[in-house]
Write a protein that binds this DNA or RNA. Structure first.
Lengths: 298, 298
DNA sequence: CGCTTGATTGAGTGCACTCAATCGGGGTGG
DNA sequence: CCACCCCGATTGAGTGCACTCAATCAAGCG
């Protein structure tokens, strides 16, 4: 990524920010293979031993961790919230803004349907899409910290969100520990995803980044029980490029190349519709295409 | 990346500015000026009105938001945790690993001193430093989501951490809502910082990225009451490059160039020690050097 | 029909990468 | 003590990927 230092006169090009592939989509951590046991180096073993046996004792709080199917878990989570909080809900249309960066924070949202983008702004006007959110995701957590929202939340499609005043949520958490577990889990998931985005942006070449983005979107859809082989992107190339940390031209070129290489296919209803004939092959491409773009550790 | 300073609303950028800059370090949100009221466009006003009056009612839960001085707030937060959880603590030495990615999650840590890096690994072996943590930061939140840690936490220096079994923390949160507020705030802060990192990587040219990293580190130190004009980086150029999404050679070149341009100065005790004669000037450089690297939105 | 917005593609350039050599400090052993 | 080595850091030379600029095309709309 290179930046261009031109003067500030252009328009809003600040976007470039992000990249990552799955930024806002789930990672299939569940598919994590049995983790190779690795010696815990450099750490007094007592540190880990101290707490190792607590695993069971805290399970009751873990909420939905025990459920295997992620989709089931999500539904369970949403049902829990509906029952314990009984939130109002709201229909949103494309372009609607749920909250603005800088405005006082007092509400979070749980997405029932639709697709949303979170846009951060820097002082000097750069804009960055920092996350994409879908059904089952929460909106607004980043505003807790300083009592003001940290970004804009913009609907990219018609959808529906539950409106949950933060005060109500906190009260619910106090009364119902299982709700607190749900909230913690959701925030933890959000932290994880941001990091995956960062990793994508930092370690993948542009075409692999686009490919991973598509993989992540597909997995995200699959996890929500939707079609994973026919994606309908609800974003312009500019949005995509901003999110992925590259220019819109590069996005376009990468998609064309992926199409040429048969890894994806454009749909009949415009080039925002993308079908993935073989997700495994696309995922394989990401791995093989992951060039060591950045400094190797160690 | 270039930003385009066109008509974009300067209003928000003020706020954004307070937010941004600092990747893994706290931002002083408290300095936020009275926020200019701005019409909330695109959203049915009822949506916001519904909850607007709740602001006061949830203040009691806000914990330390009302305290003005961030450093005071941090101390208050740490005192609260110590009182309500009474955690054990542990000394760590450079290279010690607090937890490994993939291992079962059951403990979080609160940093009393030292510097730590969080390293994520992808399935295909890529490694990425996703975050740097210091006194007052928490370690381990990302493990809540799937019951397994999402990254390695490695000490970069001698330090001390409080060991807090997650079960204990949850129990404490149930009993003491103010502790829950602290935890939520900490997680929210973590989400914010990850996003700031992403924005840096996506929108800044390499040299500005290095400069911003130094600014953030300096602010972070200042906020913790430490010297902000004499930084002692505890990382190799490779670590730095990995964190910033560039090669170690590029990091080296950027630092040399910043030194040549008098924006920084190398210390006597090696080139990992960096002094910043004029932080404001360095911050100015970041802003002016932020070219529109990526697709502009809209 | 012209205008606008989004997407694609081409041509050319430059920034950040790769490869590689050199330098310096800290530790070890002859 | 010095020679040696290893590791981290710096610097140079050259290359290539992703950027900028720009033209073209398609679709939607007044």
């Amino acid at each position: 990524m290179r930046v261009n230092t031109s003067t500030t006169e252009t328009i809003m090009s600040e976007a470039a920010q992000l990249i990552q592939h799955d930024r806002s989509h789930q990672i299939s951590r569940d598919r994590l293979p049995a983790f190779p046991s690795r010696p815990v180096s450099g750490l007094p073993s007592s540190l880990l031993d101290d707490t190792a046996d607590l695993h069971d004792s805290f399970m009751p709080f873990q909420g939905f961790q025990s459920l295997q199917d992620p989709q089931q878990r999500m539904l369970e989570m949403m049902r829990t919230v509906r029952e314990l909080v009984q939130p109002a809900s709201k229909v949103v249309r494309p372009g609607d803004v749920l909250y603005h960066s800088g405005l006082p924070f007092n509400t979070v949202f749980l997405i029932n349907s639709g697709a949303y983008k979170l846009v951060s702004r820097s002082l000097d006007g750069r804009e960055q899409i920092v996350s994409l959110k879908f059904r089952g995701d929460w909106l607004g957590f980043s505003g807790i910290a300083y009592g003001r929202h940290a970004c804009d939340a913009v609907a990219m499609d018609t959808g529906n969100v539950s409106i949950i005043p933060y005060a109500t949520l906190l009260e619910g958490c106090v009364r119902h520990p299982e709700l607190m577990a749900v909230v913690h889990e959701a925030m933890s998931t959000e932290i994880r995803r941001e990091r995956e985005s960062l990793m994508s942006v930092c370690t993948l070449a542009s075409q692999a980044r686009v490919a991973e983005f598509l993989c992540a979107w597909a997995r995200s859809m699959a996890q929500r029980g939707l079609r994973a082989d026919e994606l309908t992107l609800r974003m312009t190339r500019a949005d995509l490029g901003n999110y992925l940390g590259m220019t819109l031209e590069t996005v376009s070129r990468c998609l064309s190349r992926l199409n040429r290489e048969q890894l994806i296919r454009f749909g009949e209803r415009g080039r925002r519709q993308i079908s993935i004939p073989d997700l495994t092959r696309l995922e394989q491409y990401v791995i093989s295409g992951s060039s060591a773009r950045t400094a190797r550790l160690q």
